[in-house]
Simulated scan of single mutants.
Amino acid sequence: MSFDTFRQDGLPTYYNPNQTPVTEDVLVVGFVFAFVIIAFSFFILIPGIKGWQRFFFFCRVTISLFIGASVTLSNFGQSWEISFISNVTTAYRAGRSGDMQADIGVNIGLRAVNITLKGVPEFQDGDSAAAGERVNYNERFHLGGSQGRTGFGRYAGRINRDFREAQYRGLPYPILWIAEYFVLDGEDIRWGRSYRLAGFYAALLIWLSFPLWLLTNILLTMGTLSEGFSMLLLTGGCMLGANIMYASIRYGSQLFIPFSAHHILYFSYGWSFYLCLVAGLVAVILAIGCHVLHIFFPGELEEFFGLKEEFNQNDLEFHVRPRSAKTLKENTVKRLDNNIIVKRSRRTRRMTVFRATARPHDKVAWE
């Protein structure tokens, strides 16, 4: 008898559809979570670092991960331009007479347009055009790919095909009304084309800044500071170039979508645009500042990046190879591993351990 639960007339079990709206961008949340894990993995090493190097290590990791996270989030973020209006009186969908109250929002990214429609209240009552329904939509229309042919056929652009699919699905009028502004491509109405080109070139520059950021970390870890600062300058320059390219190609400041005399969607830059701008400025300022410090204060800068180790003669004595040290003649100097120098004195018959602060091909500077 337990197998007959939720079954009627011997048919398979039927469950009601569980339609839930999209509340967060899963891809963006995943990237944030990934960088938080990386940061936590580095921060747990801080207690094992001595002295001021603990603070220096924290600064290096924080700044580097901030720039890397900004590159990734600005590339995949959906808020390069945003607009929002509340308590709009609008029609609902085909076959429904009357109006409804709703909040409408638009988020424009580099590759897609997100349109949000949420009823006020979310579960509509009997006086609304959406009576008895839950109004909470979040639809994405993709801008990627080529412009395509005019129309909605198989060779049309991606957003045209998404728009026709939305019409077949019977999405509410406010969503189709907004999406239509990005679909039209004729006369002087070419907002979709301008946003597609702006997002394409901005995304190229941001993608270029990602390997440059990786090279920056590799070069700074290897100790080649000048080359690392140059890569950091290029990273920030590409991010600022993405902002300039996006702001110059698209003409979104002219775009406004009216719903009534008092409810008009005006667009402004979102957090993705400003995150890319701030991270680019930080990278450029740090690169220029570090170049100047490397010229006037090279020793202090090497200490900040953990390239200058503290000298302890007692510790260096353990690095001396006994067999090599015994073969030393009186008043002779021999360079061993790790830039260690051993000198045997004629008077005391004892060996003294030194460390050369200069490069191997330079004159030896004794400490």
Score class of each variant (00 low, 15 high):
Lys50Tyr: 14
Gln101Phe: 04
Leu117Trp: 05
Ser226Glu: 13
Val333Met: 14
Val88Ala: 14
Thr216Gly: 07
Tyr251Val: 01
Tyr195His: 14
Gly236Ser: 11
Ser226Tyr: 07
Ile104Gln: 05
Phe152Ser: 06
Val353Asp: 00
Ser194His: 07
Glu367Lys: 04
Ala129Tyr: 14
Thr90Ser: 12
Phe163Leu: 07
Glu300Pro: 00
Thr332Ser: 15
Arg347Val: 02
Gln147Phe: 10
Met245Ile: 13
Gln19Tyr: 02
Ser70Ile: 12
Pro17Asn: 02
Ile175Gly: 02
Tyr181Asp: 09
Arg111His: 14
Ala202Cys: 06
Met245Gly: 00
Asp103Leu: 02
Phe297Trp: 13
Gly132Thr: 01
Ser74Leu: 04
Phe297Ala: 15
Ala129Leu: 08
Gly145Cys: 12
Gly30Asn: 14
Gln124Pro: 02
Ser226Trp: 10
Phe256Met: 13
Met231Lys: 11
Glu302Asp: 13
Ser345Leu: 09
Gly157Met: 04
Thr348Ala: 04
Leu214Met: 15
Leu286Cys: 14
Phe43Tyr: 13
Asn87His: 09
Ile38Arg: 05
Leu176Thr: 10
Trp52Val: 09
Ala69Ser: 12
Phe55Met: 12
Tyr269Lys: 09
Phe40Tyr: 14
Phe66Gln: 03
Phe6Trp: 04
Gly10Arg: 05
Trp177Glu: 15
Phe6Ile: 01
Arg335Gln: 09
Ile288Glu: 02
Ala94Tyr: 07
Met231Glu: 11
Leu281Tyr: 12
Leu110Lys: 05
Gly145Glu: 06
Leu316Ser: 01
Gln147Glu: 12
Tyr274Asp: 05
Arg190Ile: 03
Ile44Gln: 00
Ile104Lys: 11
Thr216Leu: 07
Trp213Glu: 05
Leu275Glu: 08
Tyr195Pro: 00
Asn136Pro: 00
His361Ile: 07
Thr13Met: 10
Asn338Leu: 06
Gly236Arg: 10
Phe297Ser: 15
Val320Thr: 00
Ile175Val: 07
Leu277Val: 01
Gly105Asn: 07
Asp362Tyr: 15
Phe3Ile: 12
Glu300Lys: 12
Ile285Leu: 15
Thr216Phe: 11
Ile175Asn: 06
Ser230Ile: 13
Phe58Gln: 06
Ala131Thr: 00
Glu187Ser: 11
Cys238Pro: 08
Gly151Arg: 11
Asn217Ser: 13
Asn75Ser: 11
Val36Asp: 01
Phe273Gly: 08
Val26His: 04
Ile244Cys: 08
Arg140Gln: 10
Cys276Leu: 12
Val88Phe: 09
Leu204Asn: 03
Gly199Thr: 03
Ala156Asn: 02
Gln8Ile: 08
His294Ser: 13
Leu171Ala: 02
Ile46His: 05
Pro47Gln: 03
Ser253Asp: 04
Arg158Tyr: 14
Glu227Gly: 09
Ser226Arg: 14
Ala242Val: 08
Thr90Phe: 08
Trp366Asp: 03
Thr221Val: 01
Glu367Thr: 05
Arg321Tyr: 09
Asp337Ser: 05
Asp9Asn: 11
Val32Cys: 01
Val278Ile: 14
Leu171Met: 10
Met239Ile: 00
Leu301Arg: 11
Asn114Thr: 02
Leu328Gln: 08
Gly98Leu: 07
His142Asn: 12
Ala261Ile: 03
Tyr14Leu: 10
Arg154Gln: 11
Pro298Gln: 09
Thr150Gln: 08
Arg335Asp: 01
Ser97Glu: 14
Leu176Asp: 08
Val71Asn: 15
Ser268Asp: 05
Asn87Ala: 09
Tyr155Pro: 03
Ser226Val: 07
Gly223Arg: 03
Ala112Arg: 12
Ala356Lys: 07
